[in-house]
Design a protein around this nucleic acid. Structure first.
Length: 426
RNA sequence: GGAGAGAUGGCAGAGUGGUCGAUUGCGGCGGUCUUGAAAACCGUUGACUGUUAAAGGUCCGGGGGUUCGAAUCCCUCUCUCUCCGCCA
């Protein structure tokens, strides 16, 4: 959620930046400002009336204390006076409620403003490739896609998942299950070595948490919703982990807060179909290790670079061909100010798969979360939040299987061998 | 699932209808003392809104009600604790 203060002060700048994100409904900005002016007027009227009421009530209290007949009569008179004030308050408070609700609804409909270096553009093709490995693997035509390798070595069973739950819920078996665990441990250990504190959060969150990180109201349809208890299955560990710091006022000395967590992630992915969802490409449940940082606004972009470097280090250790994209305004997520996507090359499918997304949300989430720090002047200021996948498992597995297939089986990268305990899947 | 008790500031814990944004203790911060530290002593210490600054307003788990006036009374929801039942 954008800060109302910024919208008030710099409406033109806000509109221009929204346009870069292809949010062109600029009348919303004007509407927010006009509602804000109305709100202030009504609020100040209500406050005046409340102030009058408070004073009269105090007076009544004092009069009644004396127990003198004339004072009691006076008190009764004042009670009548207050009745009229109360009616006025009731009317104005109703107005105020309507105005505030309208303003809130408009405010939460605005996406975050993109950073200056975000490229112009609307679609994936407009993303700026800031790094790409020199050699993209070129496998022989006989190379198998990962879903066939999964069947060949009996390590991932998609059909069985359909039986148990439905499409998009694979069952990992044997060396496939071990590989999964190995990757999770490897990613966690790397993050812990980089100073992140590990947490294991709940896999379901309440409405407040889903709102805090921006999933609600914007992406309601993408989460599994447990209606009986009003819980949402987490689409990413970002939600519970970042919400640990909801309603918190940090000291500056606590920056940066660094957390890492492994969780399964649940996504409804309504409307997806075809080659896009084949095999491990897009699942309803997948595993992910997520890194989250909370940082001083002056340092958040430096931190974003650190997080990008961390993810890059993981891909290097896994010996996977990757590229890094700086997302264009139209392709970025709702709440992000700057996002780098990491894509790995899936050599048998001959396509790039997104395996990580690292973003700086600036104060967009913290405004909703009321996540602040006390600055040197004792003023409470919104902190910046960042997060990134480090890494998302399923697509990494897809690339590992495809790119590393040999006549002897699937080769495990050196960095992973201590975790798998085997060098080949066969 | 059944029965009961409770939810107050960073924490502990007073407050049952009026000057209570809230006694007090701990913690935090600043100071005196000290070579330094501890102890002791003194002072200070919630958030939001609003404003040039203020005044004013709001907040005692959430929502609603009674009242001139609610932390305090009533209703309701959520959560926590204790006992019983069930159980990894």
């Amino acid at each position: 959620m954008l800060q109302i203060d910024l919208i008030r002060r710099e409406p033109a700048v806000v509109k221009a930046k929204l346009a870069k994100k292809h949010f062109t409904n600029t009348e919303v900005v004007d509407e927010i400002i006009s509602l804000d002016q109305k709100r202030k007027l009504v609020k100040s009227d209500v406050d005046d009336l409340l102030s009058q009421r408070n004073n009269i009530s105090k007076e009544i209290g004092n009069l009644l204390k004396t127990k003198l007949p004339e004072d009691i009569a006076k008190a009764e008179q004042l009670k009548n006076e207050i009745a009229a004030i109360k009616d006025k308050i009731a009317v104005l408070e109703k107005d105020l409620e309507i105005i505030e609700l309208a303003q809130f609804n408009h405010l939460v409909s605005l996406p975050n403003l993109p950073a200056d270096i975000v490229p112009e553009g609307r679609f994936a093709e407009d993303n700026l490739c800031v790094f790409c490995v020199e050699e993209i693997p070129n496998l022989p035509e006989t190379a198998l896609p990962h879903w066939e390798l999964a069947a060949k070595y009996d390590i991932i069973d998609f059909e069985l998942g359909v039986k148990l739950t439905g499409a998009g819920f694979p069952v990992y078996k044997k060396q496939g299950a071990k590989l999964q665990r190995a990757l999770i441990s490897f990613f966690l250990d790397e993050a812990i070595a980089a100073g992140y504190v590990e947490v294991i959060p709940p896999l379901m969150v309440n409405k407040d948490s889903a709102f805090g990180t921006g999933q609600l109201p914007d992406k309601e349809g993408q989460m599994y919703h447990i209606t009986e208890d009003e819980f949402y299955m987490i689409p990413t560990a970002e939600v519970p982990i970042t919400n640990i710091y909801r309603d918190i006022i940090l000291k500056e000395s606590q920056f940066p807060v660094k957390m890492v967590g492994y969780t399964p992630c649940f996504r409804r992915e309504a409307g997806s179909y075809g080659a896009d969802v084949r095999g491990l490409n897009r699942l309803h449940q997948f595993d992910k290790v997520e890194i989250v940082q909370i940082q001083h606004p002056d340092k958040s972009y430096e931190t974003l670079d650190n997080m990008v470097a961390h993810v890059e280090g993981l891909l290097k250790k896994l010996e996977l061909p990757y590229r890094i994209l700086r997302l264009c305004g139209g392709d970025m997520s709702f709440g992000s100010a700057l996002t780098y996507d990491f894509e790995c090359y899936s050599a048998a499918q001959k396509r790039w798969l997104e395996v990580s997304s690292v973003s700086n949300f600036e104060s967009f989430q913290s405004n909703r979360l009321k996540l602040r720090y006390k600055d040197a002047n004792g003023k409470n200021v919104l902190a910046h939040t960042l997060n990134g996948s480090a890494l998302a498992l399923a697509r990494i597995v897809a690339c590992l299987l495809e790119n590393n297939q040999t006549e002897n089986g699937i080769r495990i990268p050196d960095a992973l061998k201590p975790y798998t305990g085997f060098e080949y899947i066969h």
